[in-house]
Amino acid sequence: MKPRVAIFDLTSCDGCQVEILNLEDHLLDILGKIDLVNFRIGKEVKEPGPYDIAIVEGSVSKEEEIEKIKKIRDDSKILIALGTCATHGGLQSNIHFMDENEVKKAAYNDKHPQQTRDIKAEPLSKYVKVDYSIRGCPIDKWDFVKVLKQLLIGKLPKEDNNPVCVECRFNENVCQFEEKGKCLGPMTHGGCNAVCPSNNQPCDGCRGPLEDLNLKAGIRIMKENGVSDEEILKMVRKYTGVDELYNKIEELVKNGNN
């Protein structure tokens, strides 16, 4: 029997689901292998659980989304976080490091809508157990295919623990530390084919920090290259600042080379 797969979205830009639709040449093949029972942006009929695989995009940013993700977890054998909003809160997690009132005022000019019972954006893992994370803002669609293939043969995929630098070398790129003096590549999970450095842009860390990252060294090199403390903090906190591996970042940046 084909596995029952459900795709859900919480608060996000829908871009990771768009990346799934962007698998144009392979989309019909994929749909032939699964029973897609829930996919709001692509289909009308929604079937209730249980699901074999739930794939969830977006951060938990409203009170009702806490209940929603818990229900999805209860209904699903395997829960996959899809993209940076789901794995780390994403861009909207910036609110953890800013003055909440100022941020809201800038967006809604003092007249903040009452009904949006919003909470500070959090990754899914804050509220439920996540079985696997497909990283990236947006995800790499081939990464999604790889993960789905493994799940279809009954395996839970294992993630490589390589920095972006590995793929950057394969692509024979000039190091962005040389070009721009800054890059989060050495501290960040690869798997994106180093898409930013390969296009002559520093990695901005959307896939989240590596478990064994050398944060001290990364910060030291950027500081030596004249990148300001403020800029380093903002780079690190752009998409995945709530990751606990970044808990001491402020201290580290301020203490510099110690």
Binding site: Q92, M98, V103, E231
Partner: peptide, 24 residues
Amino acid sequence: EGARYFEGFLKGRKYDEVHHIVSR
């Protein structure tokens, strides 16, 4: 949709990262 406050996040960001932020 959960509010995401883009105009708020842009405040204090550098001019050259705005396009990457608003793309999201």
